[in-house]
């Protein structure tokens, strides 16, 4: 089938505002959305700029706004986006961060927020001879959250992030959950005050855009709610 692919383009050097460009692209139902962009870049317009690497939902580099929702371009199929021939698919950069060019956003702020929650194991006790053990039951608590690939689809789908660029956002706070609820971690005294702050948990209004957007189908809101309860009960 032939599809109309609308791409939100922006060239900072042109000094012109972003605009929608439309390309006619041949596609099969089982093609990924990413393959449409690759077709444009390889055959129609080599200046089109976007991030991708693995093309298999591992690296997290090609999150973008597809048909008005944040998705991972390599992990969504054409057949799930359109009904048939002549239909339109739109691609725009993730909303809420500065655009560098076309579909590429500046992720600086996103990763600053990630580092802010101390996304590493905090434990000062001497390490055992081999690894620090964790039972399957203890791992089950954090397993869903460990699947995150830091694509940013969630944080950039959140109205709280759009309204407040300093809001930590779902991705960073999901990491805070992942370490705080890790049976081997002893850092909640340091980590909780960071998420229990004016830029943190309390700006989550349970809007669920993040859960809808996550390509790994992580129930982010569920874990942020658990973190909220922990932040509150830790004080009393």
């Amino acid at each position: 089938m032939k599809l109309n692919v609308k791409v939100r383009r922006y060239d900072p050097e042109s000094g012109k505002p972003p605009y929608w460009a439309t390309y006619e692209v041949p596609a099969e139902p089982m093609d990924s959305a990413l393959s449409l962009l690759l077709h444009i870049k390889w055959h129609l317009d080599g200046t089109l700029t976007f991030r991708k690497s693995c093309a298999h939902g591992i690296c997290g580099s090609d999150a973008m706004q597809i048909n008005g929702e944040n998705k991972l371009a390599c992990s969504v199929l054409v057949q799930d986006l359109v009904k048939g021939d002549g239909d339109t698919i739109s691609f725009a950069p993730l909303p809420g961060s500065p655009v560098i060019k076309d579909l590429v956003i500046d992720q600086t702020r996103f990763f600053e927020k990630y580092r802010a929650v101390m996304p590493w194991l905090i434990n000062d006790t001497p390490p055992p001879e081999r690894e620090r053990l964790q039972s399957p039951e203890e791992h089950a608590i954090i397993e869903d959250a460990t699947k995150c690939i830091m694509c940013g689809a969630c944080t950039h789908s959140c109205p709280s992030t759009w309204a407040d660029p300093d809001y930590l956002g779902p991705a960073a706070m999901l990491k805070a959950y992942r370490y705080t609820f890790d049976s081997r971690d002893a850092g909640s005294a340091q980590r909780l005050p960071i998420v229990d702050s004016k830029d943190g948990l309390w700006k989550c209004y349970t809007i669920f855009n993040c859960v809808q957007a996550c390509p790994k189908e992580i129930d982010i809101t569920r874990w942020l709610s658990a973190l909220k309860r922990k932040a509150v009960t830790a004080q009393y």
Binding site: Q65, N67, G68, E69, A92, P95, S157, P159, T206, I207, F208, N209, V211, Q212
Partner: peptide, 9 residues
């Protein structure tokens, strides 16, 4: 205006 509105939003 641009983002798809689902149940939660």
């Amino acid at each position: 205006v641009r983002y798809k509105i689902r149940t939660g939003m």
